[in-house]
């Protein structure tokens, strides 16, 4: 199981993208949720922590690198959509 050149670009892109992907969720999701800021931020963090490893898995899971990048973007969008129903907590 060599540290082959085939996987290296994926690893680098995954390493570069995974955390910013989580950060995007943690930054923007609270603005979409109508609840007190600490609560909405926690909900965003719950999603963001899932997004980071999922992005890595997605980039490695697709056959082509471009497919992986597109899928990673889809993961971020899906996470935000899934997290939105948590807005049902509502404002206090």
């Amino acid at each position: 199981m060599a540290f082959s050149s085939y996987y290296l670009p994926r690893l680098l892109i995954a390493a570069l993208l995974a955390y910013p992907a989580g950060l995007v969720v943690a930054t923007f999701l609270p603005h979409l949720l109508h609840m007190p800021r600490p609560d909405s931020f926690f909900v965003a963090q719950v999603g963001a922590v899932i997004v980071v490893p999922t992005t890595v898995l997605t980039i490695f899971g697709t056959r082509s690198l471009w497919g992986g990048l597109l899928a990673a973007v889809a993961v971020i969008a899906a996470t935000m959509l899934i997290a939105l129903p948590l807005a049902a907590f509502g404002p206090q």
């Binding site: 199981m1 060599a2 540290f3 082959s4 085939y6 996987y7 994926r10 690893l11 890595v56 898995l57 490695f60 899971g61 056959r63 082509s64």
Partner: peptide, 24 residues
Amino acid sequence: MTTPHKQSVPSLRMRMGWLHAWIG
């Protein structure tokens, strides 16, 4: 798990195996 051939794309299991091994 061997280094994949230039022309062939490694299977999902191989890609995940590489990730699993090295990150792990």
